[in-house]
Design a protein around this nucleic acid. Structure first.
Length: 342
DNA sequence: GCGACAG
DNA sequence: ATCTTGTCGC
């Protein structure tokens, strides 16, 4: 029996239930102790998940079973706001943890309160980091020799009910005309954490690519909303897409995840260097827009990626395929569950 | 010690 | 990304 017959080929690593993993750790902070967002995030495997932790803790029900009130910021300030702040203070006080006012609406816990920093449980983000490094090692940045005539722009929008709604728009780059599109929606699989966008948005991108093929709309390359090699592991979502699908991709980001711009002779253009590596371009079309950040996903060179994006500028901030995919995905948020193509 | 963090 | 009113400017 051949594995090739499977219609559910595994392309992503198993995704942890981060919500449950965080809640198990939160429950390990006993009365009389406090912990921090950063300590919880580090225990999950990456301190950069601290903002996600903070948002989740802020959304916990006040009368639930989890000790939301025992989480403070690294500097000791209490994160709760408004009336919830007073309830956090009184709950801590009832457990013997004092806090003092430092400003209107700002209180700080007694620095002598014991801080929990270590928790039982696996670093569930670590396998995802390892997977990204594996994908990074697969990336080919040599110049593409095949055609670049049809480019599919890919983007994802999120509905209030949690659906991830993706859209793909195929553009004839010579004419700069839209020749077709596809849409797909899936349940939101993973939260947004800086550096881990792939695990949130790649599933719907792969579904989109299948829908394009099914609709007879094969594109030569994909332009992905997000970074490619311009990523701490050199494997942003555009690179993960390329590694998993063997489709050449360009990453087009609207803000910088890592690296710093280095000016060039062209005022519209800056090199992005991270850790000594030149891995992207910052481009402000006509100098009148906030820059966009271009990097290789895989399957072509950085020069080709830049040239392709520039060729699709039509007076707006984003290149045509990305702009149209952005529009269609936002439109799909209001649409039905499932997939479609045109 | 302060800042930074794709979508 | 998403939640949202009016407002500044070509």
């Amino acid at each position: 029996m051949s594995g090739a017959s499977s219609s559910s080929r595994t392309v992503l690593p198993p995704l942890p239930d981060l919500n449950a993993d965080l809640e198990r750790r939160l429950a390990q902070t006993p009365p009389g102790q406090v912990t921090t967002f950063g300590a919880l995030a580090k225990s999950l495997g990456d301190r950069r998940a601290a903002v996600w932790v903070a948002n989740l803790v802020a959304a916990l029900p006040e009368n639930g079973l989890l000790p939301w009130h025992r989480v403070v910021r690294a500097d000791g300030t209490l994160p709760a706001i408004g009336p919830r702040l007073e309830r956090q203070r009184s709950r801590l006080a009832a457990e013997g943890v004092a806090s003092v006012d430092v400003a209107p609406g700002r209180a700080i816990v007694d620095p002598r309160a014991p801080r929990r920093r270590d928790f039982e449980g696996a670093s569930v983000l670590q396998p995802l980091l390892d997977w990204q490094r594996e994908m990074a090692a697969r990336i080919d940045e040599s110049p593409r020799t095949g055609p670049i005539e049809l480019v599919a722009g890919l983007d994802v929008a999120f509905a209030a009910d949690g659906r991830a709604c993706g859209a793909a728009v195929v553009v004839n780059v010579r004419e700069r005309t839209v020749i077709g599109s596809a849409a797909a929606s899936l349940p939101d699989p993973f939260p947004y954490i800086p550096g881990y966008l792939t695990f949130r948005e790649l599933p719907v991108l792969l579904e989109l690519w299948q829908r394009l093929a099914a609709a007879g709309l094969p594109a030569d390359i994909a332009m992905v909303d997000g970074q490619g090699r311009l990523h701490p592991r050199r494997a942003g979502i555009a690179s993960a897409f390329a590694a998993v699908s063997a489709v050449p991709t360009i990453g087009v980001g609207k803000s910088l995840l890592c690296g710093r711009p280095l000016a060039t002779n062209d005022p519209d253009l800056a090199e992005i260097v991270d850790d000594g590596e030149r891995i992207g371009w910052s481009l402000s079309p006509g100098g009148r827009f906030k820059p966009i950040y271009i990097s290789v996903g895989g399957g072509l060179s950085l020069d080709q990626a830049l040239a392709c994006v520039r060729s699709q500028l039509t007076g707006r901030r984003l290149p045509l395929p990305t702009h149209e995919a952005d529009r269609l995905s936002k439109q799909a948020v209001g649409g039905p569950v499932g997939t479609s193509a045109s």
